[in-house]
């Protein structure tokens, strides 16, 4: 694995803070009703993305996840302004306003969505890996899911097929403790999710999902195994989300104390503490980063605000590749 240097820590701090503030901004504009639909935020889980990005090759490797998906494409290189614009439903958005919060995609940056049906992306991730293997490319697919998704049949069918066909895919469960309002303990007799890999003879294990170094090490090992023809891995990242499942979640299923406990091991705070302890930067220098992050997030908001809404015909243009598909009329 690439060394975790001072530069890496500083990048992690800036990236994770940006993702956090980006999500906070979305929450704010959601309350102002500028962003609608459902809004699922990543706050608390940032170490998983930061660690992953350190361990992969974004030129060949692919990411696919569920609907908590705003910041992963940003991490892969997508202009965050375009992600913000997508949530505003604007023509400049990543899907030209057709996808919204749950469906961010970037072919250019190997981000394959952005999927709204719990567990529906799991076979897709294996399918991306299937094609890379079919065409003898060196790419590895990282397929993310929440703890709710592991109870879907799609996971079990895909694990079986991915092992049977030795596909270059890493399955990563981001266990943030709750499938919407249902705790892991209420979804299965067996609460150690990583053990689901054992039944398929898939290498698997738990990872501290609040520490980007731990994440990077585990992902690196899994990605390299897949790249060398060693097949799939299943990692359970133990993490936590500070915000509700979506913005409409009153969070009666957990206590404020529980949330505060997890904030003590917040990934950004952990990285910040290391930076200060190892004197990679001074507090004042970090404050400068904070300021620049805030400014960049404001630029995203401004871009999204000022972008035009899409032309109505785009609704038809994107459904089929065929250019003259004869759609049925729907109004007089």
């Amino acid at each position: 694995m690439k060394k975790v240097t001072k530069e890496v820590y500083l990048k992690w701090y800036e990236d994770m803070l940006f993702w956090r503030k980006f999500e906070d901004k979305l929450a704010a504009v959601y309350i102002q009703q500028k962003v609608r639909g459902f809004l699922h935020l990543y706050n608390g889980q940032e170490a998983i993305l930061a660690g992953t990005l350190h361990a992969i090759n974004p030129k060949t490797d692919k990411l696919i996840t569920a609907y908590r998906n705003h910041v992963q494409p940003i991490g892969m290189g997508v202009d965050p302004k375009r992600v913000m614009a997508e949530l505003y439903g604007k023509a400049t958005g990543t899907s030209q306003g057709l996808g919204g919060s749950m469906h961010i995609f970037s072919k250019e940056h190997n981000f394959y969505g952005g999927h709204g049906i719990v567990g529906g992306q799991i076979p897709l991730g294996a399918g991306l890996a299937f094609a890379d293997k079919y065409f003898k490319r060196e790419g590895v697919t990282l397929c993310y899911m929440g703890d709710g998704a592991v109870r879907q049949g799609s996971l079990h069918e895909t694990f079986n097929l991915a092992m049977l066909w030795n596909l270059p895919v890493v399955f990563i469960c981001e266990n943030n403790g709750y499938a919407m309002g249902t705790s892991v303990a209420r979804t299965s007799k067996e609460q150690e999710i990583w053990k689901l890999g054992l039944g398929f003879d898939m290498p698997c294990g738990p990872v501290d999902g609040m520490d980007p170094v731990k994440v990077a090490e585990a992902v690196h090992e899994a990605v390299e195994r897949a790249r060398k023809g060693g097949g799939p891995t299943f990692l359970e990242m133990k993490t936590y989300r500070y915000r509700g499942h979506s913005m409409s979640d009153a969070q009666h299923y957990r206590t404020k104390e529980e949330v505060e406990e997890y904030k003590k091991i917040d990934p950004i705070t952990q990285v910040k503490d290391i930076i200060l302890k190892k004197k990679y930067a001074k507090e004042s220098e970090l404050k400068e980063i904070d300021k620049s992050v805030k400014a960049r997030v404001s630029e995203c908001e401004k871009f999204a605000e000022e972008s035009p809404f899409p032309e109505k015909n785009i609704m038809y243009d994107a459904v089929y590749e065929q250019e003259d598909y004869p759609f049925l009329p729907h109004k007089l």
Partner: peptide, 21 residues
């Protein structure tokens, strides 16, 4: 050949179609 796993192999096929197949 696939096992009896329509959800799994239909999804894997769709994923591969997104990636060149």
């Amino acid at each position: 050949d696939t096992p009896i796993s329509e959800l799994g192999f239909a999804g894997i096929a769709v994923g591969s179609a997104m990636n060149g197949n």
